[in-house]
Amino acid sequence: MLTQIFAHLKSPARARSLHRVFLATLLSAIMFAPGGLAAAASDANKSVTLRGAEAFNLLVGNTLRSVGNSKLIPAFRYFMTQQFEYRCSGWDPSGLAARDIRLHSEAGGCELLFVALRQGRLCESYQYEECQEHELELTFARRSDPAKVAEGEVFGVVTLPETGRTATGPSDPDLIKGKFELVKGNGTIFPNFDPVPKPDLVRPDPLALSLPPQDSGRTQRLIGLSDAEATTKIIGNTMVRLGPDRKSDGRRGEYYTPDGRIIVISIPKPPEGIDLLHPSAEIAGTIFINRWKIINGALCRTENDEPTKFNCNVSLSLEPPEQAGDQGTPRYVAGNSGVGQGAYLAKGNSFAFDFGKSVRK
Rank of each mutant, 00 (worst) to 15 (best):
Q214K: 11
D145K: 10
I223W: 10
G236I: 09
N192D: 15
K198Q: 11
R221A: 14
A230E: 00
K177R: 14
R203C: 00
F155T: 00
K148M: 09
P197N: 03
L175C: 07
T163W: 00
L207I: 14
F180N: 00
R143P: 00
T163N: 06
V154H: 03
P173I: 04
L211N: 07
P170H: 07
S144D: 14
T159Q: 10
E181A: 12
R218Q: 13
D174N: 15
E153Q: 14
T168E: 14
T232Y: 11
V158A: 05
V158Y: 03
P146T: 02
G217E: 14
L211V: 08
D215I: 04
K177E: 07
L182I: 01
V158W: 05
P191L: 00
P161Y: 08
I223S: 12
E162K: 11
I223E: 15
A208G: 12
E162D: 15
D174L: 11
K184V: 05
A167T: 11
R203Q: 10
D174F: 12
K148D: 10
A147P: 04
K177D: 03
I235G: 01
G156S: 03
T188P: 01
D174M: 12
A150M: 10
P204M: 07
A230N: 00
T219C: 09
D194L: 08
F140D: 01
K179H: 08
K177F: 06
G169N: 05
L225R: 07
V158I: 15
G156R: 02
V183Y: 00
K148H: 12
Q214T: 13
K233V: 05
D205R: 01
L225F: 08
P199E: 03
K184T: 04
P212H: 11
S144T: 11
D215T: 09
P204W: 06
I223C: 08
L222A: 10
A208F: 13
T163R: 07
P213C: 06
E153M: 09
P213N: 05
K148Y: 07
G224Y: 11
D172F: 05
G224S: 14
K198V: 10
V158Q: 04
K177L: 09
E151N: 12
D145I: 02
R143C: 04
D227V: 05
G156N: 03
L182C: 04
S226A: 08
P212I: 08
G185R: 02
P170C: 06
F140K: 02
F140P: 04
P197V: 09
S210A: 15
S210I: 12
L175M: 13
I176R: 13
P199C: 08
L222Y: 10
P204N: 09
T219Y: 11
N186D: 11
